[in-house]
């Protein structure tokens, strides 16, 4: 995090240097609208990349392509050495290795907190029930809400729900975590508890791509900040470079609008 190198090239991965996620020439269309234009980025193992940009710039679309919630139209996506293709097996493999946290939490309202977390391990990894629950309880301690295990999502605050969602993703023991505006639906007083959980996760060495508007988080936790606009990656750099000395005009304009 103290790395002062300016990564102006998005394909220069930080972290351990080992590549975890690689997007090469990725395009995505919604009808005639081009949501992603020739996206090239490489994310290193244990790296935290924060993606910022105005709404409609393709940030969410990009990370949703990584675990096939959206289908990219051309280019290559490789996650943990597996290339994403139409083959359902490769999709399942990548989803197993990739956790995702959503803006709207998307917890399963008909299942208790513990069942939300154990569902993946039991159904996908075939973990026995007892073992899955033990794992779930450990994760709930990690996100600091062990006392909520038997409640239902509807009984929790937004911040607590989002932390359960993080625990649910972690239960699959993913190599990569994708965060799609994880704090945008939260009341201000709950944002911090979720960001703290994410920061802890980053410090534990998880590879993360975070789409967010939380500039403080970007500055403090990110190895690299990616600025996107109109479906393109406009600028990439360390937080210091990005916030204190941006080179692109569009970046400067965006920062002047939000800061």
């Amino acid at each position: 995090m103290t790395d002062q190198t300016v990564f102006s090239d998005a394909t220069q991965a930080a972290g351990t240097g080992e590549t975890m996620i690689e997007l090469t020439g990725v395009d995505k269309f919604f009808g005639d609208f081009q949501a992603l234009k020739n996206i090239n980025i490489r994310v290193g193992k244990q790296e935290v990349v924060v993606v910022i940009g105005p709404s409609g710039s393709g940030k969410s679309t990009m990370i949703r392509c990584i675990n096939r919630l959206e289908v990219h139209d051309s280019g290559r996506i490789v996650v943990g050495g597996i290339e994403l293709s139409d083959d359902i097996k490769s999709i399942q493999e990548i989803r197993k290795e990739t956790g995702m946290v959503f803006q709207q939490f998307n917890l399963f309202p008909h299942l208790s907190v513990i069942d939300n977390i154990t569902l993946g391990p039991r159904q996908v990894l075939n973990l026995p029930k007892g073992q899955a629950e033990e794992l779930a309880r450990e994760l709930l301690i990690k996100v600091q809400i062990p006392e909520q295990a038997n409640k239902y999502p509807g009984q929790l605050s937004g911040g607590q729900q989002q932390r359960v969602a993080i625990a649910r993703s972690l239960a699959m023991n993913p190599k990569v975590m994708l965060f799609d505006e994880p704090t945008s639906a939260l009341d201000p007083e709950m944002i911090k508890e979720v960001l703290d959980t994410m920061q802890e996760l980053a410090e534990s060495g998880m590879t993360m791509i975070v789409v967010t508007h939380e500039m403080g988080f970007a500055r403090e936790v990110a190895n690299r900040v990616v600025f996107m606009a109109d479906g393109e990656i406009v600028e990439v750099g360390t937080p210091e470079h990005f916030f204190d000395d941006p080179t692109e005009d569009r970046t400067k304009l965006f920062l002047s609008q939000i800061l």
């Binding site: 096939r68 399942q92 989803r95 959503f102 998307n106 569902l119 159904q123 996908v124 993703s169 239960a171």
Partner: peptide, 17 residues
Amino acid sequence: PKGQIEAGQSIGLSPWK
């Protein structure tokens, strides 16, 4: 909501599950 299906997919559940 569609998000429920996406959440299921993102933890690796098959479409049937």
